[in-house]
Amino acid sequence: MVRLVTHNLLACHVKGCTTNNFPLAFQDVQIELQEAEFNPEFVKNLIPRLEWGALADAAKQVGDTSLPPEEPDMMDDDLLQKLHHVLLEIHVIEGAMVCPNCKHVYPISNGIPNMLLAEHEIG
C-alpha cells in the first residue's frame, strides 16, 4: 500500500539521478480508501517534512482536490483532517510511479511498489 505520505517522501534512487527526481509521477493507478485513526499530532509532526505542492498534486492525480495548492500559513483542525485523509487513508494499490527525470518506472502491484534496480542503475 503506497500511502501518499510515503509517496511524498520518496525520490528516484537510480544511479546519477539526483536532480528533478521528485516527485514520482503516478501512472494508471488504482486506489483504495482505508479508514485510519485521526492523530492530529502525527499529522502536525509530518508537515515540516512534506513537499506541499507535490502532495496537493499527487492527491489531485488520484482524484482528491481537497488541499490548497500552496501550504497555508494557518493549520486549523479542518485542514488537519483533510491532510490526514490525503496522507494516510488513500492507498495506491496498482499502477506505477515514474521518475520525472530518468523515466525509470517503479511498478506497483498488489499494493507493493517494486523498487529493485537493474545492475547498471545501482549507484
Partner: peptide, 22 residues
C-alpha cells in the same frame, strides 16, 4: 499489517528524501 510495504534490496540503497523517518 498497516505499514506501507516496498519490494527493495537494501544493498541498492534508499531513495527516501532527507529527514523522512523518526
Amino acid at each position: 499489517v498497516e505499514g506501507d510495504l516496498f519490494l527493495q534490496d537494501i544493498g541498492q540503497g534508499f531513495g527516501f528524501r532527507p529527514g523522512s523517518f523518526d
